[in-house]
Design a protein around this nucleic acid. Sequence first.
DNA 1: ATGAATAATTGTCATAATGACACTTTATTT
DNA 2: AAATAAAGTGTCATTATGACAATTATTCAT
Lengths: 235, 235
Amino acid sequence: MQNIITNAMTVYPQVARVVVAVDCIIFGFDGRQVKLLLIHRGFEPEKGRWSLMGGFVRGEEGLDIAAARVLKELTGLEGVYMKQLSTFGEPRRDPVERTVSVVYFALIDINQYAAPLSDRFRAEWFTLKKIPPLIFDHREMVTQALVRLRQDAETQPVLFELLPAKFTMPQLQSLYEGVFSRKFDKRNFSRKVLASGLIVRTKAKEKSGSRKGAFLFRLNKSRRTLRPVFEHIAN
Amino acid sequence: MQNIITNAMTVYPQVARVVVAVDCIIFGFDGRQVKLLLIHRGFEPEKGRWSLMGGFVRGEEGLDIAAARVLKELTGLEGVYMKQLSTFGEPRRDPVERTVSVVYFALIDINQYAAPLSDRFRAEWFTLKKIPPLIFDHREMVTQALVRLRQDAETQPVLFELLPAKFTMPQLQSLYEGVFSRKFDKRNFSRKVLASGLIVRTKAKEKSGSRKGAFLFRLNKSRRTLRPVFEHIAN
DNA sequence: ATGAATAATTGTCATAATGACACTTTATTT
DNA sequence: AAATAAAGTGTCATTATGACAATTATTCAT
């Protein structure tokens, strides 16, 4: 494997070169609440303060790859599907040196990923209402991610990423309520979700957390977008 | 004004530094069709081929600022509101040197901005169906921008950015049809748009392009999102 | 065994939004 | 005055929505 920049290659003259970083925002759902994963930053400046999972992009590494690597290194999480959110590049956002940061975000089912997070990593989950002060512009990143998450969730069935393969209707509703910070009527909620044809009821029941037990649902194999696609101007 | 990186400042050791660029995608509407603005690239490699408006971010310059400057330099356009789309950073996307490009996009009313584009710039408008081959990954950037534009237009009244202050109902419908690449029923279309309360009919008529003439509409002063916000899961 | 307690599940009705559909109006041109 | 071209407008059947509360299934306590 060779270095991509060899002596023979032309390079753009007179152009500033800067450090490029990635930051990862991981939202999780534990069946009750939507949470955000944070770590204690491991190096100066701001060492020890709460931070998103971030790191520098390496020479021969694409952005998506870098984000996956950084997440793995700092939390042990692997195979998490992350989407690019936005890029932050104010000249002084990082006091050490100009750093442009590409932000990724993902949704996961906390219970599914509980194991890797355990010991050697100092990552912790925070509910959205109790996010501690974060370094740099990380708080702004999270705010933007939430806006985007809600926007996406309005038009696409993305929130199912946060659930286990089988889930109950009350869990699904809590999830939506958590993400949108509001309550829904349970009769209307289930009517609407079922009408979408996206989920199917199984025969099994989940029997913890309630005396009666709740039926488990799963995603319909033939996943589609909710309603052929939402268009406020249609036909 | 000082340089932000002084000798006294610590810098991150062992970290790769790369060129950061911005590329601008400008969508326009001329009353009939949605179009894309392109220029002949002015430097090697790929000099002379069609390209988005791009340039390098300077040392002390934020990303938004850089995008506005680059657009101005290459097209003369000023005061265009651009939104960040996404960042492209595959290691070999630019064959000269690794370059991470932050992509911005905007919507404008072509007629309003006709003047600045005129002579000394070699920018040209292309209909979406006749986009020529573009350099690097610019075609992919445009594709993503269109997806995003449609997504945004489904939930927010963004398309009005593409229209002059006063516009006719048939123009508005053409715009939506152009962006979504489909036809709408004019009765249902106007019913729906009017029901949103977003636009108001004026007494004036636009009398070119039709014998009868068409009433002019304007945006309602009290702009809101179309319907309090679209939620596929609500209440 | 019985009853109390807890959370899940389910239905109605009035109103609003949607989609399919075609004729009338207005002003110009011939 | 008639033809033409595009703009403007109405109905109806179907579906989606939002507001609303009683019933069911199970466990726990007595």
